[in-house]
C-alpha cells in the first residue's frame, strides 16, 4: 500500500495534474477570501469555507479521473494485480495519495485564517471544526471519483461522469424538496428498489432463480413492514435520498458544531465507495 501511495503522490507532481488541482483550488479560495474577508473586513472565515465547496465539482474530477482508468488503459494494472499486493491495498494507496494532495492544498489555505488573526480575534476552534468538515467532505467526494475511475479506462469519461455525480449530490437537497412524501409513492419506490436489486443480481450472475427468490423476499419485506408499520412509507423516498446528502451534514460544521455523527457518516460513506471500487476491480477479473 505504501509503495502505491508513494508512486501516486509522485505521479501527481510529475504531471500537471497536481499543480492544476492546487492552482485552481488556491485561486478560487484566494478570490473568495479576498472578497468576503479582506475587502469587507469580516472575520467570518467559515463562510468562505462553505462558499468554496462548489470548487469540488471541478477539482475532484481532475484529481481522481486518472487514478484507476489510466492503469487499465496503460495495462499497468497487470503489474499491480499480479504482484503480491491485495486489491484493497492498491485502492487504499491510491485513495490516500489523492486525499494527501487535497490535504496539502488545504494546509496552504490555513494561511488565510492566520492572516485574519493579525487583524482581530477569530474563532479558532470553529475554524478548526470547519476545516475538519471540509476535509471529510472532500475525502468523501474523492472516494466517489475513485470509484467512477475504476469503471472505465477512459479518463475523460471518468472526469465527466464524476462531475455529473457530484453535481447530482450538489443539487440533491433541492431535488428532495420536490419529491412526493405520501405513502403510496413510498411503497412504489420501495418496490422499484426491490426490482432494481433483483435485476442487478440477474445481470451479474445470470441466474434467474436466485434473482426471483431475492425479488420475492424483497416484496415480502416490503409487505411485512407495511403491515407492521404503515407510517414507515410516509416520506420514504426523501429519507432514502437524504442518505446521500453529503452537503446537509456539512452544514453542522459550518454552524461551528463539531458532532460525531456527521464525522462517522463521512468516513462510512468513503469506506463504502472504496469497498465498491475493490469489488469492481475484483469482479473484472472474474468476468
Amino acid at each position: 500500500m505504501l509503495a502505491v501511495f508513494k508512486r501516486e503522490l509522485k505521479a501527481y507532481f510529475a504531471s500537471p495534474t497536481g499543480y492544476i488541482f492546487m492552482g485552481f483550488f488556491l485561486l478560487i479560495s484566494g478570490i473568495f477570501f479576498a472578497l468576503s474577508n479582506l475587502l469587507t473586513a469580516s472575520p467570518n472565515y467559515l463562510s468562505v469555507l462553505s462558499s468554496i465547496t462548489f470548487v469540488f465539482l471541478i477539482v475532484v474530477p481532475i484529481l481522481t479521473m486518472r487514478l484507476m482508468s489510466e492503469e487499465s488503459r496503460q495495462k499497468t494494472d497487470q503489474l499491480l494485480l499480479t504482484s503480491p499486493l491485495s486489491v484493497t491495498g492498491i485502492v487504499l494507496g491510491k485513495y490516500f495519495a489523492a486525499v494527501m494532495v487535497f490535504l496539502l492544498t488545504l494546509l496552504i489555505t490555513c494561511l488565510y485564517p492566520i492572516i485574519l488573526s493579525f487583524f482581530g480575534t477569530i474563532a479558532v476552534w470553529e475554524i478548526v471544526g470547519g476545516y475538519i468538515g471540509f476535509f471529510l467532505l472532500g475525502a468523501a467526494f474523492i472516494s466517489i471519483g475513485l470509484f467512477i475511475s475504476s469503471l472505465t479506462d477512459n479518463q475523460v469519461i471518468a472526469a465527466v461522469v464524476t462531475f455529473g455525480a457530484l453535481l447530482f449530490i450538489w443539487i440533491l437537497d433541492w431535488i428532495i424538496g420536490g419529491i412526493p412524501t405520501d405513502r403510496v409513492s413510498g411503497i412504489v419506490f420501495a418496490c422499484a428498489l426491490v426490482v432494481g436489486v433483483a435485476a442487478l443480481v440477474y445481470f451479474t450472475t445470470r441466474n434467474i432463480f436466485v434473482s426471483a427468490v431475492i425479488a420475492v423476499i424483497g416484496f415480502g419485506i416490503v409487505a411485512g413492514i407495511y403491515f407492521a408499520n404503515k407510517y414507515f412509507f410516509d416520506g420514504f423516498i426523501v429519507r432514502t435520498l437524504e442518505w446521500f446528502s453529503l452537503l446537509s451534514r456539512y452544514e453542522t460544521f459550518m454552524m461551528g458544531i463539531l458532532s460525531l455523527s456527521p464525522i462517522v457518516y463521512y468516513i462510512t460513506f468513503s469506506a463504502v465507495f472504496l469497498f465498491l471500487t475493490v469489488r469492481v476491480i475484483e469482479k473484472r477479473r472474474w468476468s
Binding site: K10, A11, A14, T76, L79, T82, P84, L85
Partner: peptide, 25 residues
C-alpha cells in the same frame, strides 16, 4: 510476469520504476 504490452509507467524513470516494482514485490 512479462505481459505482451510491458506494464510500464511512462512518467517514471527506469530506476524509479524498478524501485517501485521492488517495493510492491
Amino acid at each position: 510476469y512479462m505481459p505482451e504490452f510491458p506494464p510500464l509507467y511512462m512518467d517514471m524513470t527506469v530506476q524509479e520504476y524498478l524501485d517501485f516494482v521492488s517495493d510492491i514485490k
